[in-house]
Design a binder for these strands. Sequence first.
DNA 1: CGCAGCCTTAAAATTACCTTAAAAAATGCC
DNA 2: GGCATTTTTTAAGGTAATTTTAAGGCTGCG
Lengths: 238, 238
Amino acid sequence: MEDRKYTILLADDEKEIVDLLSLYLENAGFSVIGVFNGKEAFDVLCRKDAFIDAAVLDIMMPGMDGYTLVRKIRETSNMPILILSARSDDSGKILGLDLGADDYITKPFNPLEITARVQAQLRRYYRLNAPAAQAQERITAGGLVLDRASCTLTKNGREIPLTAIEYRILCLLMENRGRVFTKSRIYEHVWGGDFYESDDNTVMVHISKLRDKIEDDPRNPVYLKTVRGLGYRFEKEK
Amino acid sequence: MEDRKYTILLADDEKEIVDLLSLYLENAGFSVIGVFNGKEAFDVLCRKDAFIDAAVLDIMMPGMDGYTLVRKIRETSNMPILILSARSDDSGKILGLDLGADDYITKPFNPLEITARVQAQLRRYYRLNAPAAQAQERITAGGLVLDRASCTLTKNGREIPLTAIEYRILCLLMENRGRVFTKSRIYEHVWGGDFYESDDNTVMVHISKLRDKIEDDPRNPVYLKTVRGLGYRFEKEK
DNA sequence: CGCAGCCTTAAAATTACCTTAAAAAATGCC
DNA sequence: GGCATTTTTTAAGGTAATTTTAAGGCTGCG
């Protein structure tokens, strides 16, 4: 474990639970931000001045239930999430885990166990989420340079104007150089939401436009390759 | 591509549990290696031909108890580990988690919950640990290397162009090396939908084309074998 | 030896993909 | 808010590649 003090977001509408668990977690060396409903929890997460290392969330909360909160957190973060609930049915457990929670503990619980599980999750998180995972700001391929800080593409030193969608597609494919993406996967990543057959053509049009912009000969692409029947791939550089 | 099959090591001295859980995990799309004591489990982990994505281990096992096994696994691997135990005392749980287990589930349990927890652990593991994910996206057999990220096949370092259907058939068979697939099973996996008699020949044509591409002598195939009356099998590597 | 199962090859059929332009929607400026 | 501009989506024609179908021949087994 690193030396710094980790901050845990603890959200439960039962004040006694928040107080009790806070005690144990603080005793174990954590810093705890305790709140009593889902909305507050979400607000804490949106604040820039409080970095949360892990969340311990009750399911049944006013303002925003735990499931919704898990989903929202997962849109932007990989932080460990542990769910607490008085529900003992398994379908609720499975739903929580499917939504992206990392653990699910039913009440009543032993606070020491919660503490151990939080520690285990954080240990794992910081072991696996190495500094090497730090995002590169620039991705280079041949004469192309994608700058993700400024959201620009340059080819041989000259900026190529991209539309938002073109940029997002290229970003996805260049970040995952070599990997084949189906049209539906591209759609889901770039547009979000569900893919329908008719969206096929939309993706293809954008791919075509992107090729016009980045390839020397768009009809014989060097970077943005088609894998017929499977999808598209940004070529790994040689 | 993202849909490869994960392999779970399942170790418990109660055969009924191994059988039951295997059923559920296999139904969820996992490949399961079931063993009945700690020593066997450790032996499986030392084998080079079986890459284990996650382990589900009982604590009280002959040959090597679960705690020892967790410690040994953690010496060399970050794979997700889930512990099963009849013990309900919390100190055992906490010890397991401190040793490096990622989850601890007390018996009796719902197999669906175990499955969901395995899935959650794997999801997290491969989201946070990208290099590990990539290592497993290649399957090697002799001079053949199937790369499932880029959807390419290379033979002795040179890329062999495959059509989408050829690629899918080969993927299926190489992922399940050694296993016989009937023509109808191949059809259902690769094409989806129902198999009719007339599709027999379609499958055979593709197999023939695939042999042309991957075998040194397609008429005397070394990799892609026919099991007369039963189906086809990609030979296990020697 | 007969026959079912399998293999191979080539032609017919189908499909996936590409491009282009028009319609629709979104954005930015005055 | 109106309007010009830009972006995105939809529609449609064309083509190369892939897939399916058909059919002759080979192989292994009872």
